[in-house]
Design a protein around this nucleic acid. Structure first.
Lengths: 235, 235
DNA sequence: TATTTATCGATATCAAAATATCGATAAATA
DNA sequence: TATTTATCGATATTTTGATATCGATAAATA
């Protein structure tokens, strides 16, 4: 049997193996996928059908070898001198990182950050459905933000009993973060996207992803110091 | 000369060596520092003076060995059976990740995300000074948000000529991101905190830190799939 | 049709990060 | 005072991630 045969895998094989590939996916690769998608969407809208790993790497300022390794997870086979099929890549990446079927989301906390997230189209683009937003501020309750109804936080149980919610997005003050998380877990939620600076304690089976601006700021800060040290030495 | 001698370094030695330690700091370590700070501040406010690596590790759900290695960068020496001095650790970490002196910041784009960031106290806590916000929406111009004046984006040059700005925070639509970044670079900015989904092209000496919600969402998505696969197999 | 060349993908190497091991030590306890 | 124990920090190992090398191949070109 030959080892290096191009373009023999069918689309169905790709799809069938996606579950096992999922296990092998590493964090840095997953983080790069949406960046690839952005480049691919752009090229696609320009009417291009194929793209090389070099081209993608250039756009994103990363190494082409990294790109090829990452793209290998989609199961899409590139052709020498041509590159990869853009539609197949888009499909392949989406298979890996998008939700399967309808996934319902609640957003808790309709402050500025919450509003910003309601305006961010990414959730819908990835196959998620924002069901509603919640807030304790009665001035906000009853309004709609980006077409989403804002409910009183007291009505949370009411809604979670009626609709199957899989993800909760927490944009609330720290002091109520753990309490709310615990409530959501009891309501059967599967994942929490945590925009508070609290380390949430949840059971094993609940996926938590925390955003931490302070961590980012620390990185920015250190990088700046390094850069200025560098410049100081040059002078 | 003995190798394992506790508590002999003075505070001044710690400070003097901070520049060289800066080089050795790795990204994951830098990202964890603010998390350590949060735990340390909490303990400090409870009146505690010492803490063990195990305690910190437990709070943050990470490995105590990782904690000890990270804390070694502060130059603070822990004592067996006692742990580390909390005030010294706080000071040590702050030395590494905070700005030196007064660092001026401009925030470009006073939409929901921009407003959320103006409300986020982290920048001030790290020694940064938000000078002003800018927007193109004339309804916002002239107002103040969290005590920061909102100027017309047209006035950007005016301000950058008057005040030395080191960091620009971009919370603006994608289509004007590169243009604005280029402008800021010309105005002599040192770093950009980029909340748009654009890969900014800037010169070497400018530090860029990009936040990418889509990358985070991809991680959340894949983790959820893995968790549900896991559960499916258990059943 | 033969040669050149861009590009892939497999394998190998190198670097970074996480984790494990273990002796040293100082407080607590017997 | 002797022994036990919690905890540190140095060093070693393993895992993960990035980068380099190179043969295979198919389109482009001579």
């Amino acid at each position: 049997m030959e080892t290096n045969s191009w373009a023999n895998k069918t689309f169905n094989e790709t799809k069938a193996s996606s579950e096992s590939l999922l296990k092998e996916l590493r964090l840095p690769t997953i983080r790069r996928f949406p960046k690839y998608l952005r480049v691919l969407w752009d090229l696609s809208s320009l009417g291009r059908d194929f793209v090389s790993s070099d081209k993608i790497a250039n756009e994103l300022n990363i190494d082409p070898i990294t790109v090829r390794k990452d793209l290998a997870f989609t199961g899409v086979i590139g052709k020498p001198r041509i590159g990869y099929s853009i539609p197949l890549l888009i499909n392949g990446i989406e298979q890996l990182i998008q939700s399967n079927g309808q996934t319902n989301i609640l957003l808790i906390g309709a402050g500025n950050l919450g509003r910003a997230l309601l305006g961010y189209g990414g959730l819908e683009k990835h196959g998620y459905n924002i069901v509603a937003a919640f807030d304790s501020d009665l001035n906000k309750v009853g309004t709609t933000i980006h077409n989403k109804q804002v409910y009183n936080i007291e009505q949370l149980t009411e809604i979670t009993e009626k609709v199957n919610i899989e993800i909760g997005v927490l944009c609330i003050p720290e002091d109520v973060a753990q309490k709310t998380a615990t409530f959501l877990v009891k309501a059967g939620i599967k994942a929490i996207w945590n925009f508070t600076n609290t380390e949430l304690k949840v059971p094993e089976h609940v996926t938590v992803l925390s955003e931490d601006l302070a961590s980012s700021l620390a990185v920015l800060s250190v990088n700046m110091k390094r850069n200025s040290n560098k410049k100081a030495k040059e002078e």
